[in-house]
């Protein structure tokens, strides 16, 4: 009897152990299929989510917080860990993210370093505005390739989505069709919304506005708005008295009703200028998640258009 119980015990232990092994193995199998994507911005992460859909199981991590100036984000240990363990990196290209290269070096993930092929640059094929003619920093901008705030034009979001789909298709050929299909579906939805936005903004065509930083030329061009000037005399230089005096004059001459700022920019100067010129300050979202209404790309643009419509 005792022997029987010992044998039963052994069998039970063995069965438990094998189950455990099987469980671990299947867990690993799952883990291998899950794609880990690190996106440099919340906007890119939102577009990537559309492309991935339910084609594969994926974890999409957005690095930079939407509530900071995207140029000067300071990565945290979690960011380094996520990039280290990521299978794919999707970034804005150009020189938007000054912190991108140091972060990649610190994470040391060979997929994204040197000849690493698992990076997707979403800016490919986007016609850039304000490409500098001379490389002098004194006159121009630190952006050597052109203005990098291209995603505020929904048309460009379509190109970005295509780039993500093509990049993922190249890396995961088995799911290529699903990625492309998801991208097409999203772009169709985007086009529909775009027609609606264009229709709603049509009455405001030709109206002038002022922005804090030079982040909105793409949006302005798409909706036929005219940017009369910026509160910053040059990108990154805080407003000066003489510049503001000149700008006040311009605003009166061109009948500017709206000053656009982003939530991380100070509010005192825009409010003061608005008071003096009888204009309104509008805080737009330049990244997904910057305000609670902007939960994904479409809702962000919807909210931006709604705010502009209301103010103009």
């Amino acid at each position: 009897m005792k022997i029987l119980s010992v044998i039963a015990n052994r069998v039970l232990t063995l069965a438990t152990f094998s189950f455990f092994l099987l469980f671990m193995w299947s867990g690993n199998l799952f883990a291998a299929e899950k794609i880990r994507i690190a996106a440099t911005t919340t906007t890119i992460a939102s577009l990537a989510k559309e492309v991935v859909g339910n084609a594969v199981e994926a974890e999409i991590y957005a690095i930079a917080s939407p509530n900071r100036d995207i140029h000067f984000y300071a990565p945290t240990p979690k960011d380094v860990l996520k990039v280290k363990k990521a299978d794919v990196l999707i970034h804005s290209g150009l020189d938007l993210e000054a912190w991108r290269d140091p972060l990649l070096v610190a994470a040391g993930n060979p997929r994204f370093l040197g000849e690493g092929k698992a990076s997707i640059d979403v800016s490919k094929g986007i016609p850039l505005l304000e490409i500098p003619t001379s490389l002098s920093r004194a006159e121009g901008d630190i952006h050597l390739y052109g203005n990098p705030h291209y995603w505020t034009d929904p048309e460009n979001a379509g190109v970005m989505t295509q780039n993500i789909a093509e990049g993922l298709a190249r890396l995961y050929p088995a799911q290529a069709d699903r990625f492309r299909q998801n991208a097409d579906t999203f772009i169709l939805k985007l086009r529909e919304k775009m027609n609606d936005w264009l229709r709603r903004m049509k009455p405001h065509e030709g109206k002038a506005l002022v922005t804090y930083h030079n982040s909105w030329p793409y949006l302005a061009r798409r909706f036929g708005l005219v940017i009369a000037g910026h509160l910053e005399p040059k990108p990154g230089i805080p407003p000066t008295a003489k510049h503001l005096a000149e700008l006040r004059q311009t605003m009166k001459e061109k009948n500017v009703r709206v000053i656009i700022r982003e939530s991380f920019q100070e509010d005192r100067t825009p409010q003061k200028m608005a008071q003096e010129t009888d204009a309104k300050v509008v805080s737009l979202a330049s990244s997904v998640g910057q305000m609670k209404e902007a939960t994904d790309y479409l809702s962000m643009m919807e909210e931006n258009v709604r705010l502009l419509e209301e103010a103009l």
Partner: peptide, 21 residues
């Protein structure tokens, strides 16, 4: 008189030890 002026200075004075190579 140069673009992104403030940021030049900020960059020189704010290192990020997390990303040291």
């Amino acid at each position: 008189h140069s673009a992104e002026g403030d940021e030049h200075i900020r960059y020189m004075l704010v290192g990020n030890i997390l990303l040291v190579s």
